[in-house]
Design a protein around this nucleic acid. Sequence first.
RNA 1: GCCGAAGUGGCGGAAUAGGCAGACGCGCACGACUCAAAAUCGUGUUCCGAAAGGAAUGUGGGUUCGAUUCCCACCUUCGGCACCA
Length: 822
Amino acid sequence: MADIAYNFTDIEKKWQKKWKADGLYHSDIDESKPKFYALTMLPYPSGDLHIGHWYAMTPSDARARYMRMRGFNVMFPIGFDAFGLPAENAAIKSGVHPMKRTGENIVKMRKQLRSMGAMFDWRREMVSSDPEYYKWTQWFFVQLYKHGLAYRKMSPVDFCPNCNTTLAREQVWGDDRHCERCGTPVIKKDLDQWFFKITQYADELLDFSTIDWPDRVQTLQTNWIGRSEGASVIFKTEAGDPIEIFTTRPDTLWGATFMVLAPEHPLVDKITSPAQKSEVEAYKFEAARQSDIDREAVDKEKTGVWTGGYAINPVNNSRIPIWIADYVLMTYGTGAIMAVPAHDERDFAFARKYHLLVMPVIQPEGQPKLDGATMEAAYIGGGYMANSGQFNGTIINEEKGRKNPGISAVTQWLEKNGIGKFATSYHLRDWLISRQRYWGAPIPMVYCKDCGWNPVPDDQLPVTLPEDVEWKPTGESPLKLHPTWKNTTCPSCGKPAERETDTMDTFMCSSWYHLRYLSPWCKTAPFDEAEYNYWMPVDIYTGGIEHATMHLIYTRFFHKALRDMGITEGAEPMQQLRNQGMVLGEDNEKMSKSRGNVVSPDELVKAYGADTVRAYLMFFARWDMGAPWNSKGIEGSSRWIRRVWLLFTDPPRPGKCSIETKRALRRRLHQTLKRVTRDFEKFEFNTIVSSLMELLNDMYKARDEGVSGTAEWAESQDIYLRMMAPVAPHVSEELWARLGKPYSIHTQSWPVVDEEAAREEEVTLVVQVNGKLRDRITVPADVSEEDAKAVALASEAVKKHLEGKTPKQVVYVKGRLVNIVV
RNA sequence: GCCGAAGUGGCGGAAUAGGCAGACGCGCACGACUCAAAAUCGUGUUCCGAAAGGAAUGUGGGUUCGAUUCCCACCUUCGGCACCA
């Protein structure tokens, strides 16, 4: 009887070994088939595959398998995002070299990934910390530099005092502005750093019209980019120095009664009068001392000081005082604003506090005339312009930007008179990529006292990491403390020079890994052109939504930049994106070691087998939503697979069975096939498994009615296993083989729906009286409207509820219901 | 404050295109098998009601013959952004 038992451990090992030996999941260029590039976000080699990885990857794998069966030449690669802080922090703690630790973790995780039985093509694996990989990461940096898209700038940057490195704006999260990785609140530091000009692509990044990405991600990215339309206007100081401001409300220019500059604004010192100097200096000092958290707290009372200087409002030549205040940020717009207290809440609060003039210039229709002296709040709605010279009476509606005709008219006038022009402004900042850490790709730049910064020539790439470094959490890159590594010669003049000792943000590495999968063996270029032309773009990208404003925006930028440098084609790297939700612990909290609620996939595989774990992860929640883990629920998936096993290994039990039984089986079979196919298309994995469970229940009943051994039974088994194969690849392969069918089930085609078989011959009509269910009647599927209504009206239950009244109206929905209205 | 998503049994979740609410699974209850337990199989399981019947998809309105589904207002939870000029 050993043969009959479902021994998942042996079965899974056996087939994994055979698939590997046969190269069943190798994908190569094949012009005879349509290609399909399925990509799942690559893991960081933490050393343990998390249930979250399984949750993300197994449905992605099932979908890739489904597409393969649909006739596509599918590539589903995997690799490791191997650079990053955890390995280096561990080195500081334990002294184990990140290279060693990462290598060991990858070996362990490869094994864990293989236990999933996924169709990864391991020949295409890439590891971002491999010099063969980061050589090209560095090469891309050089290309960006040569094309003016990488630049170095001294600027106040976010610095995590725990991770001892700078962070990109995207990596600073939450109200308290903490480090995305370790949760420590960040501080500001003035540092000379490398940036990528992602802002140059802001407008293009807002265009999602050619890609099928979830609305959620589009919204997050759109908000993150934060585009606003308005005008840039030049004010002048009394001394004649221009001060450029950005405003979304040029229609309120006539109400600008003072200006406010950020304390760091370069003109502050020049404008400040001798009498105000000490006060201004004190304020600047205080602002610099404050953390961003304090400074950017919304509810904080506005403070500021007068510089003693004046500017001229260019639209009406009025003389307005110039203040400095920390509610104006040097990092947005131009670091200077015109203040229109009558129509801006912040300016209003500031004006009232410091007794500055409030001048209403937008009058709401049909309301008493606004009076600047008595207004209790800024008026921010629409109306008509007032106190605005020739524009008086111009209608200003609530719409923003150039779509507002009143604002547009003012902007055109500004342009004609050389006062200002149409302008856009963005929240998006350039991408800061310098990291003061060791475990990353060194930035391939050399500084020479005579020649300045020069990129490392291509033939000297990669700039490899030295292995003999000391682990000290100093806030400086260990590369800087290395005695010799930084010494080199200038690529331009040949004299002694120094290397850049910062490394790159790891998001740079992950911005192009999908290109390395095309040909990780390629020595002469980042990717092989023929492979690129065949496989790109990525057809489906799956992964977590937490990367919406980080990786997913960087990789789009990267692709567009590469396109403009002539390296890639097309505007977008990934055609379709789908995000999974998160698996929480059983306590409904985020899984973490400290909470002790982590679910180990290894143990589950040991206890239930990979197929059951896969099935359960696809079944237990809506994939895009995620849900708390339920350790008991997996029993249901386990039972399902065991019941499939029992039924499919059960010898035929010949018996009498009616034609109707056979027909009913085929009907259910093909109806299920229709649903499963539709759900695979829509990434609705939970209903795929439940449909298969339902069909299995029906097959059990049909077996008891004597169907086993018939042609209809054989067809059902055949199609059942093919539908099940993407979900549970091992057990379906085993049962397929036991039925004597040709290896491998995974190279079979997806079954075709027999519409005729799926068609219902009889339907149950719902009979309602006044919209309430009163009866159900079974009629032939092709019943006529008159017949259906007649049968419904003849129903005893209906008669009872009609209580002798005559129907006012009888609604008939074909094949569904009759509703009698009285 | 702004933007977005989600609210359905004890639980996870189903419900083509506005048409049988609660599929499938977990859990629970009872039964069969067993000396017993596990496993397995069977029956039941939204609430109220003895039943007939009634109520019910966050709340309140609306559209409709008919609303979990569409519209309006609100509440709650989660995620993102936030002195952005």
